[in-house]
Design a protein around this nucleic acid. Structure first.
Lengths: 218, 218
DNA sequence: ACCTATTTTTAGACTTATCTAAATTTATTT
DNA sequence: AAATAAATTTAGATAAGTCTAAAAATAGGT
């Protein structure tokens, strides 16, 4: 099987492919992995030899089918463990990431399968991200960023784009959580901030906030 | 914190110290770790520099207080995860070892603490081994090997010495499990085999078997 | 106490994953 | 189209953990 490091690279490539809808450059990957471009090149060569990625010198990488399958398995495990930590072990949603980063590399098909069943085959992790099923299928919700909503529009909060502890704790402090309805009352053209209505309370939030909250319009 | 490999060495030293009530030789450790003596020497030096073991050239090693504490933490996690796998995820007791070997290295105090609580602070793992509590305390049961029992003696099956899949499946096949009463009906001096009574059934078992089953006499 | 066998350590090498610094390729600008 | 800038790769080094083979230390038998 694959090393922790290899799995982490695959995951990173997967996320970057989604984000930019394109092949992934060495530098982009270096930034995502918080490492140097030269290290990335080395690793890419290894992944390429194992047929996990398609690579041509100077042309960036993309995942092969095997690489994609492997990446999705790791993401599936990550999100299942996050769900487990929050639902069963009293973790807050801002505390799960680092532990799930470790747990996602545990190798045992039975473990993943049984954990999934034990949790009741959850569809989304605590941050609203979809959990791939055993076949690697997952739904992509028709969500938009809160910042894309116009005045008087409303929807349900369904996910976060940034899942850093700082951002999540900000949301906690302001009683914003997944499943709640948000209505845009005002939008400030100057700085992109908006006044929103959530559970009968009015709240002014900066564009940085609205840019990191996913909404399902209705 | 410590690497997987360092933690595995500490665990092995801990088990060997218990087993032989003495310092641990390089060769014994090499055998336990399924590696070469030269690799062991290298690792011991590293552990010694980190004050995890007390080491004098050619004199074997023993755990320092810190090393012992660390080893017990790893063992605690290993056994908690085994309990989790069996009680919550439908693993059989012969399937848990390899997965627990991976899970025992996950670093998160909160995870261990919450897992323990979630499981109801179990005292013993699926093989009957004691689970250390958060302070590292654990009870050592007054158990004996079944082979040490004489004719007409009886007791409760409380643990296994060998937890290999082969042995555990043999026990399953013969309906021997922890908590059941076993009575020695006959003991064969020649080959050490014995005829036992378990749940109204008579069963003849070899000395290899009786040498690997722990009994609490009564 | 000496010789031999066993155990343990050292020396040097290999692999994985990383780094810095230099070289090369690609992209951009004039 | 040449010159410059940016991105990428190569070369060589490092650290962790392992190995083989050789050297050194300890233990045992007479």
């Amino acid at each position: 099987m694959f090393s922790f490091s290899e799995e982490n690279y695959l995951k990173a490539i997967f996320h970057l492919e989604r984000k930019y809808q394109a092949g992934v450059s060495t530098n982009a990957l270096a930034e995502e992995m918080e490492t140097k471009a030269s290290s990335v090149t080395d690793m890419i060569k290894k992944l390429s030899e194992k047929d996990l990625v398609i690579y041509k010198k100077y042309q960036g990488v993309k995942l092969s089918e095997l690489g994609k399958k492997t990446a999705i398995e790791v993401i599936r495990k990550h999100r299942l463990w996050e769900y487990f930590l929050v639902e069963k072990l009293n973790f807050n949603w801002d505390e799960v990431h680092d532990v799930a980063e470790q747990l996602e590399h545990i190798k045992s098909e039975k473990l993943t399968r049984e954990l999934d069943a034990f949790l009741g085959f959850p569809k989304r992790d605590p941050h609203g991200d979809p959990i791939p099923d055993a076949e690697g299928n997952f739904s992509v919700a028709n969500k938009v960023l809160l910042s894309e909503l116009g005045k008087e529009e409303k929807g349900i909060c369904v996910g976060v784009r940034d899942s850093s502890s700082d951002f999540l704790r900000f949301l906690d402090k302001n009683n914003i959580s997944l499943g709640k309805e948000i209505k845009v009352l005002e939008k400030e053209a100057f700085d992109g901030s908006m006044l929103i209505l959530i559970e009968e309370r009015q709240l002014r939030i900066s564009q940085l906030i609205s840019n990191n909250l996913y909404i399902k319009k209705h």
